[in-house]
Computed example of a mutant assay.
Amino acid sequence: MRRLLSILLKGLAAFLLLLVCVGTFLYLSDPIFYKRLATAMQGMDVSAVEWRQPNERVPGGDAELEVADEHKLDAEAVSEAITYAEHTDSMALLVYHRGALVVERYWEDHASDSRFDSGSMHKSVLGLLIGAAIDDGYIESLNDPVGKYIEEWSEDERGDIALRELLTMSSGLKVEAMRPTPFNKGMRLMLGADINELALSLPREQEPGQAFEYMNFNSQILGIALVRAVERPYAEYLAERIWQPLGAPDAAVWLDREGGDPRTFCCLLTSARAWVKVGKLFLNEGRVAGEQVLPAEWIRQMASPSEVNPNYGLHVWLGAPEDGQREYNSASDFAVRHSAPYKADDVLFFDGAGGQRLYVIPSAELAIVRIGHPETDWDDAILPNTLLRGL
């Protein structure tokens, strides 16, 4: 019995030593990832912008946002929208209608200058920047192969993927959904310290342009191509071409490490009012104060259904799916509910995880921003349809 106990103790000690060795090796391979992973629950709060370090400033402006003392939205509809925002643990709800901000509500001591991480809403801003790069001549065409801009893929089959296929989430790259494990590539893209190298390691599994597979890797690779095409830092180009012309307050992009690369698939740290200004850019077909900041044709292209998904354009979501469930990709077990068709045919929206949203409805001259705690049962029909009924 004593000998058996000794063997068991030695086995346990060896197992624990192995765990320590493996854990040490993994930690040393990317200590930034494991430090972030250890405090990731804190990062779940979209208002915890200080947790998202390091970050790089995106200088903006101070253009005033028009605020209306009176509006033509039905008071009952506005009350219903505010109630839904309250019941879904929102931090901000802003409604812009016919040239002015008509609703601006904040909760939990947040205010107009509070900054939030609105998740994948950043993807749609990246889409705007691709249009700017084409307008500026840095990118020739959406049909350009990405290998033209990413040297590592210039002689690789992945280099044949067109920029359009990255924008429409039909790249054919291996689908990597984010899972809460340290070995998951999706999680490493979110928290790791060398995300560009990770993104460029993703293999191709099928022919590009065949299937819609929404995933963060497509946007990160698109961001790499953009930065290399314009030959300047992402934050600098974003400020010059979008943020400063909008007169939006300063923002920040989250870097993977000090002096490293920005996450272009998520995590643009800015205020709810800034998103209203982005919504105005769509409502005004690329114009700001009479100046054509982006070509109107690019705004229309972004809002046009792609061949692989009628509910997705160029990095923006469009309309409501017929079956009432919007799925992201074939590896995801999560879908967003659309309890009813939209009451307008031209609803487009920026989608951030857990109900971070910018809805834009040009026919109604309406933009709606909701920022809040991640909501697993978010219903994309309620806010737009409630306010459309109140017109």
Score class of each variant (00 low, 15 high):
residue 338 H to L: 04
residue 346 D to M: 03
residue 359 Y to M: 11
residue 21 C to W: 14
residue 54 P to V: 01
residue 32 I to H: 12
residue 15 F to W: 15
residue 156 D to A: 06
residue 239 A to S: 15
residue 361 I to E: 02
residue 364 A to I: 09
residue 328 Y to F: 13
residue 176 E to Y: 14
residue 390 G to A: 15
residue 335 A to D: 03
residue 34 Y to K: 12
residue 76 E to C: 01
residue 203 P to I: 02
residue 372 G to Y: 08
residue 1 M to L: 12
residue 265 F to T: 01
residue 337 R to I: 15
residue 4 L to E: 11
residue 323 D to C: 06
residue 60 G to E: 07
residue 308 V to S: 00
residue 240 E to K: 13
residue 158 R to M: 02
residue 130 I to Q: 05
residue 124 S to W: 09
residue 29 S to K: 14
residue 318 L to F: 01
residue 287 R to M: 14
residue 106 Y to T: 07
residue 302 M to D: 12
residue 268 L to P: 01
residue 292 Q to W: 12
residue 223 G to E: 12
residue 294 L to K: 09
residue 107 W to S: 07
residue 99 G to L: 05
residue 202 L to D: 12
residue 68 A to G: 07
residue 64 E to C: 00
residue 99 G to M: 05
residue 356 Q to F: 05
residue 304 S to C: 01
residue 287 R to D: 09
residue 78 V to F: 03
residue 223 G to T: 10
residue 338 H to Y: 14
residue 233 P to T: 06
residue 278 V to M: 03
residue 127 G to A: 09
residue 233 P to D: 06
residue 317 W to S: 01
residue 330 S to E: 10
residue 4 L to N: 11
residue 149 Y to Q: 06
residue 252 A to V: 00
residue 79 S to G: 06
residue 83 T to Y: 09
residue 111 A to V: 08
residue 327 E to D: 09
residue 374 P to S: 09
residue 267 C to M: 03
residue 47 S to D: 07
residue 380 D to M: 14
residue 315 H to A: 13
residue 1 M to E: 13
residue 237 Y to I: 07
residue 165 E to W: 09
residue 238 L to A: 11
residue 345 D to V: 01
residue 285 E to H: 14
residue 3 R to E: 08
residue 54 P to Y: 04
residue 5 L to H: 12
residue 309 N to P: 10
residue 89 D to I: 01
residue 277 K to D: 04
residue 163 L to N: 00
residue 221 I to A: 13
residue 340 A to K: 12
residue 347 V to H: 07
residue 346 D to N: 10
residue 335 A to R: 11
residue 59 P to K: 10
residue 139 I to N: 03
residue 272 A to Q: 07
residue 322 E to G: 04
residue 157 E to S: 11
residue 152 E to Y: 02
residue 19 L to G: 13
residue 196 N to V: 05
residue 224 I to E: 13
residue 376 T to Q: 14
residue 338 H to T: 04
residue 66 E to Y: 00
residue 20 V to P: 02
residue 300 R to S: 15
residue 391 L to A: 12
residue 193 A to G: 15
residue 112 S to P: 09
residue 312 Y to D: 01
residue 273 R to N: 03
residue 233 P to L: 07
residue 292 Q to V: 13
residue 385 N to M: 09
residue 239 A to V: 07
residue 120 S to Q: 13
residue 296 A to T: 15
residue 6 S to A: 15
residue 54 P to L: 02
residue 293 V to K: 10
residue 357 R to F: 08
residue 391 L to M: 15
residue 361 I to V: 15
residue 201 S to L: 08
residue 172 G to E: 00
residue 207 E to W: 08
residue 291 E to G: 10
residue 22 V to S: 11
residue 299 I to M: 14
residue 212 F to Q: 00
residue 352 G to A: 07
residue 239 A to D: 07
residue 112 S to K: 15
residue 93 L to I: 05
residue 362 P to A: 03
residue 216 N to E: 13
residue 113 D to R: 13
residue 124 S to N: 10
residue 51 W to K: 08
residue 122 H to F: 15
residue 247 G to H: 04
residue 67 V to F: 01
residue 286 G to Y: 12
residue 226 L to N: 08
residue 382 I to F: 14
residue 195 I to V: 14
residue 283 L to P: 03
residue 337 R to D: 10
residue 304 S to I: 00
